[in-house]
Simulated assay, not measured.
Amino acid sequence: MLTVSEYEFQNDPYLASLLASQMVDDNIGLTDGAETFNAAWLDPRHPGVRANPILLARSLEARYREAFYRDAIQTGHVEVFNGRPFYRSKLGMPQFAGLVLEAHVVRHLAENRHALQVAITWCSRRAGVFPSFKFVNKYLPVGTGLKNTKLEHKRWFDSSDPHFDIMFFKKVPPAERRMNPLLPALQPLTIEGTTIPAGIQVKAITCNEEEQIVTPLIDGTYSHVLTLLQHANGVHSYNECLRLLGIARQSGRINHEKYLQLKGAVFCPQQLSMDQYNINYFYEYIAQWYRGQVPPVADIQEGMIAEVKKAMCTSSLLVPSTEIITTVPTDLPTCF
């Protein structure tokens, strides 16, 4: 909860408009002449919030702090001491943000069965109808650069591997392993009709798509790329990739058939049922936290951190859950 004095409410146009609209409910309370309200209730897109650095920081913190902890701890670059997270890495902000967003995408796919179905269909090039949920539920998305993944399954995962940030694995039934002890405990999803592992490269960039995405797609380094962010001018990286692929086709660098194939090899968050606004502001929160601009939080309890760590330990990213949560896709802003 965020407490704001009566004076501030009277002199801040945005806060004054909130009171004038009589939007006082469980999110707002009046205490000793000051308004106390849930900062998550503030819209970080509103000009009144963006014009006030404290309100913006608190709004982003209230909305994304818990998700950030869950995802940042998975990167291996953030550790928790005495209930507070500390950065333990030499990575720059873009690289760190990319890893956190990778963990965020992995968690989204693990919790959203429809998004998982679309991702599996897309990267394994399964033609025709979607694979059944019975097939999909056998697989769990795995972030190849995440801490637990690298510690527990070094055979498959190398953070320097340029091909995949996310792969999909299923447990091999014990009966099959008894018949063939050489079978691994986990088997990767493969491109349909082949033994080639399928996966997704995740990009959190706002420029340089030619070098970072388009050329690696054309030369075969990447097979499928999920690009998450928008440029400062509002143009989505996805749209810039399509523009550059169009130029490559027009110049004769690739033919029309290759153009259509590569066009389908690039996704934006909307295509995996992810809200672009949430991605934008989660990224903004990561950047603020990295730069130390998130104000100190007095109500971070060790119990909350312990709960996050317990969830990370008991819900391993490498062991498919018997119950995958299905969420209803939100109305998403188009990136086309």
Score class of each variant (00 low, 15 high):
Lys170Trp: 11
Lys171Cys: 09
Pro173Cys: 08
Pro174Val: 09
Ala175His: 12
Glu176Met: 14
Glu176Thr: 10
Arg177Thr: 04
Asn180Met: 08
Pro181Gln: 12
Leu182Lys: 14
Leu182Thr: 14
Leu182Ile: 09
Ala185Trp: 13
Gln187Asn: 13
Pro188His: 10
Pro188Asp: 09
Pro188Phe: 07
Leu189Asn: 04
Leu189Phe: 05
Leu189Gln: 05
Thr190Ile: 14
Thr190Lys: 14
Thr190Val: 15
Thr190Gln: 11
Glu192Ala: 10
Gly193Ala: 12
Thr194Ile: 11
Ile196Pro: 03
Ile196His: 11
Pro197Phe: 11
Pro197Ala: 09
Ala198Ser: 12
Gly199Thr: 11
Ile200Gln: 02
Gln201Val: 12
Gln201Asn: 15
Val202Asp: 03
Lys203Thr: 04
Ala204Ser: 14
Thr206Gly: 13
Thr206Gln: 14
Thr206Pro: 03
Cys207Glu: 15
Cys207Pro: 01
Asn208Ser: 14
Glu209Cys: 06
Glu209Phe: 04
Glu209Gln: 13
Ile213Asn: 01
Thr215Met: 05
Thr215Phe: 03
Thr215Tyr: 06
Pro216Gln: 09
Leu217Met: 07
Leu217Gly: 05
Asp219Val: 07
Asp219Gly: 07
Asp219Pro: 09
Asp219Leu: 06
Thr221Ile: 12
Ser223His: 07
Ser223Cys: 06
His224Val: 03
His224Tyr: 08
His224Lys: 10
Val225Leu: 03
Val225Pro: 00
Leu226Asp: 00
Thr227Phe: 01
Thr227Glu: 00
Thr227Asp: 01
Leu229Cys: 05
Leu229Asn: 01
Leu229Thr: 00
Gln230Ser: 12
His231Cys: 05
Ala232Gln: 13
Ala232Arg: 14
Asn233Pro: 00
Asn233Cys: 09
Gly234Met: 11
Gly234Asp: 10
Val235Arg: 15
Val235Cys: 08
His236Trp: 04
Cys241Asp: 04
Cys241Leu: 05
Arg243Thr: 06
Leu244Ala: 03
Leu244Pro: 01
Leu245Trp: 00
Leu245Asp: 00
Gly246Lys: 10
Ile247Lys: 15
Ala248Asp: 01
Ala248Thr: 00
Arg249Thr: 01
Gly252Pro: 05
Arg253His: 07
Asn255Cys: 10
His256Arg: 08
Glu257Leu: 11
Lys258Ala: 12
Tyr259Ser: 06
Tyr259Pro: 02
Leu260Cys: 09
Gln261Gly: 00
Lys263Gln: 08
Lys263Ala: 06
Lys263His: 10
Val266Thr: 02
Val266Ser: 02
Val266Ile: 14
Phe267Asp: 02
Phe267Arg: 08
Cys268Val: 01
Pro269Cys: 02
Gln271Asn: 10
Gln271Lys: 12
Leu272Trp: 03
Leu272Ala: 01
Ser273Thr: 06
Ser273Asn: 15
Met274Thr: 02
Asp275Ser: 05
Gln276Thr: 02
Gln276Ala: 04
Gln276Lys: 04
Asn278Pro: 00
Asn278Lys: 13
Tyr281Trp: 15
Phe282Ile: 03
Glu284Ile: 04
Tyr285Pro: 00
Ile286Lys: 03
Gln288His: 14
Gln288Met: 15
Gln288Asp: 13
Arg291Gln: 11
Gly292Met: 09
Val294Leu: 10
Pro295Cys: 04
Val297Lys: 12
Ala298Ser: 12
Glu302Trp: 15
Glu307Gly: 15
Glu307Ser: 15
Val308Gln: 04
Thr314Leu: 08
Ser315Thr: 13
